[in-house]
């Protein structure tokens, strides 16, 4: 598969009064055309800021991309002017958000909010755009699309609104769809429907998806590859199967274990103990060390690098895997000892 997006050494900081908050601190990853990649991690680890950086929508003036490159089909978006970015957003890259209840404009009709994107990017005449908006609404499974189009958002449920958001986001056949916790605010039954819908639509036009979530359950439904973030950095990348079968990073192991296991007789939830470090109190050495059950002396002094080669397609940021054989052994043994 051909590469669509490549993020290199992305650093997005907030400059808040006198302190600097390193929301995203050196992130590298790539997404292939048509691929669905999940970005997971606890709240506050920098997932949203990573995605807003790709959109170049980091809240100004305090937030700023200070370093790094974001290549879409080989072109570096970080160098794009605001006007150039306007042609990318909603067109090549579109985004849906966590809060369907507040993400639609309350004073504009559903139809207007969809057609305005189509007329803006595709330069279609209004009549055609309205027709297309109706088609899109039908496609995302909204009943009575012809009449809903002149309704205002407050008449729709959360699930319906998220469908409208998806219709809007897919209206210009984007190359990349960023979905920032698209189902977090919805009921469980509706979550699955929305995920299915995203999967179907993206297959149709070969759209890549960057799915942001803190819920590993959602990941296994939709994604092919997983990126795990912790405190502004990537700590592990793997295919979904590898990750669930053999999570390498102690943090990922904790995440996988905290997923309620449907197959197990007793569903259990083991959240990782401790809290995400606040950006102004970033521990020295490995950022996960204070919460890590495997931590040893070196972890508190030195920062581990992302290790890649020896695991082929996988990468992990942990000293345990520097000496591949010993490290892998260690982690595996440990994982089984938890069971």
């Amino acid at each position: 598969m051909e590469e669509l997006l490549r993020v290199e050494n992305l650093k997005t900081y907030f400059f808040d009064k006198k302190k600097t908050i390193k929301a995203v601190d050196g992130v590298d990853f790539a997404i292939k055309r048509g691929e669905t990649v999940a970005l997971v991690g606890e709240s506050g680890c920098g997932k949203s800021m990573t995605s807003l950086s790709i959109m170049r929508l980091v809240p100004a003036p305090y937030g700023k991309i200070v370093e790094g490159e974001i290549h879409l089909e080989g072109k570096n978006l970080v160098r794009y002017t605001e006007n150039e970015m306007c042609k990318i957003r909603g067109n090549d890259i579109s985004m849906i958000f966590q809060e369907p209840m507040t993400s639609l404009n309350p004073v504009l009709t559903i139809g207007e909010q969809i057609t305005e994107v189509i007329t803006y990017h595709k330069r279609l005449p209004r009549k055609k755009a309205v027709q297309q908006a109706i088609e899109l609404l039908k496609l995302v499974g909204i009943p009575r699309a012809e009449s809903i189009i002149s309704d205002y958002p407050h008449r729709l449920s959360g699930g319906m609104r998220q469908r409208v958001m998806i219709a809007m986001a897919m209206s210009c056949d984007p190359k990349l769809l960023i979905a920032d916790e698209p189902t977090t605010a919805l009921d469980v039954t509706i979550q699955a429907q929305i995920l299915d819908l995203m999967k179907d639509l993206s297959k149709k036009v070969n759209t890549s998806i960057l799915l942001i979530t803190h819920d590993l359950g959602v990941v296994s439904e939709l994604a092919e590859r997983v990126i795990v973030m912790y405190a502004g950095q990537i700590v592990e990348q793997a295919s979904v199967d590898d990750l669930f079968e053999e999570p390498l990073h102690p943090y990922t192991q904790g995440l996988v274990e905290s997923v309620p296991d449907i197959d197990a007789e007793i569903g259990r939830l083991n959240p990782i103990k401790g809290n995400v470090p606040t950006p102004d109190q970033m521990p020295e050495g490995c950022r996960f060390a204070p919460r890590c059950t495997h931590a040893f002396d070196r972890c508190f002094k030195e920062e581990p690098q992302l290790l890649q080669k020896k695991y082929g397609t996988r990468t992990v940021r942990c000293f345990l895997y520097e000496d591949e054989e010993k490290g892998a052994e260690h982690a595996r043994k440990d994982q089984y000892s938890h069971r």
Binding site: E82, C86, I88, R89, G90, M95, T102, S103, E116, Y120
Partner: peptide, 13 residues
């Protein structure tokens, strides 16, 4: 508000 972020994400000036 969130809907302003949505409008920006649509690519509007």
């Amino acid at each position: 508000q969130d809907y302003i972020r949505t409008a920006r994400a649509k690519g509007f000036k």
